[in-house]
Design a protein around this nucleic acid. Structure first.
Lengths: 202, 202
DNA sequence: GTCTATACTGTGATAGAC
DNA sequence: GTCTATCACAGTATAGAC
């Protein structure tokens, strides 16, 4: 599970140039921001020239689009599954797991989106992600009446996303993948438990 | 409590130019990022010319420094209080309240820092904030042994910060201040409860 | 204290040699 | 497919009029 997107190196070839450039770009976008990253930096990090970068991707925006597109696809999948199974509490458990797995797999993409989703409207992938998350919030929050319930939802999802993305800024060690995954599922499930209980008994 | 930093307008005067510029800059930094904000945008938003902005603040970096400085001061205060009272569980309750109040009062500053703290090292306020938060993590996490406990801490603080800063991106209504405050305190306290219990009984 | 005018640097992007 | 050379432009910052 949680299959890695990074393919192993082909013998004596490097990864394809596009993939190398894309990886470098994503990392820069996530840490320095879209506006804070120049094509030159991306080119240097990937080991190509600026023009080569623009040969593979027609513009800086196209590069961002390609970088976050797959993450948005996956997120749409996770959430469409949720919509169908909204009523049962097992469906919620499943949603939490899938969401955490999504975060684990696409943390850089999530980081770039969270930090810049507001200011980068117009780029298709960003707009899609905004729409999807807006839909998630309203569909999930439809049954939530109190302020505390809504905040609970926001803290759970935002906290998980933030933890995966920013905690290591401050000298944390890296945790083993499985341990981190199951701990996050426990914590988020616990946070959402009061909501589930109220809805399944009502 | 939670005294506002924005002074009421003086009769027939506008706010001082510095304050207007600073406010506009902070809002832009928080939403578009430091690199994504130009002096021209700040000047336009504040109703001055680019050169006027640079008269009041000697550089763009100085503007950022002035914008987040007070927040870092306050954060240092909150955390130094925590260090002295680390042992009792009431101290932890108090810390949660103070931390939430800090977030409520300085959400824009926190947002700019969270999103860009990695890439803006070298600016004094950013470095101070990084140091303070690093200290918080290690001092608080010193007694935390399991991965789950450490993640619990990260999710709680990150989730609260994220919720205050980004939830409204997706069409949420604004909640009444007191209701939001007490709900967040409840949620964060609950998240940290297992840690407190283990430590106070050990 | 605020403005216009200007200098200089680095950016995203294009054209064309290899 | 990758590079060098070049362009037009936006960015920060400075000088000086008012």
């Amino acid at each position: 599970m949680t299959t890695s997107r990074i393919e192993p190196e082909a013998p004596s070839h490097r990864q394809s140039a596009s993939a190398e450039i894309l990886g470098a770009a994503l990392e820069q976008f996530a840490t320095a921001g879209f506006a804070g990253t120049s094509l030159q930096q991306i080119a240097d990090a990937a080991g190509y020239s600026k023009s080569s970068v623009l040969y593979h991707f027609t513009s800086k925006e196209a590069l961002l689009e390609a970088a976050i597109g797959p993450a948005v696809d996956r997120l749409e999948n996770v959430l469409s599954g949720l919509a169908r199974l909204r009523e049962s509490s097992e469906a919620r458990e499943l949603f939490v797991e899938e969401f955490i797995d999504f975060l684990l797999e696409y943390r850089l993409e999530v980081h770039t989106f969270i930090n810049q989703g507001q200011s980068l409207v117009g780029i298709p992938g960003i707009d899609r992600a905004n729409a999807v998350l807006g839909g998630l919030t309203s569909s999930f929050a439809a049954g939530l009446t109190t302020v505390e319930e809504k905040l609970r939802f926001g803290v759970a999802l935002g906290g998980a996303a933030y933890e995966l993305v920013a905690s290591m800024n401050f000298g944390d060690e890296e945790f083993p993948h499985e341990e981190r995954r199951s701990a996050l599922i426990t914590i988020v499930s616990e946070l959402l438990a009061p909501i589930q209980n109220r809805q399944t008994t009502a």
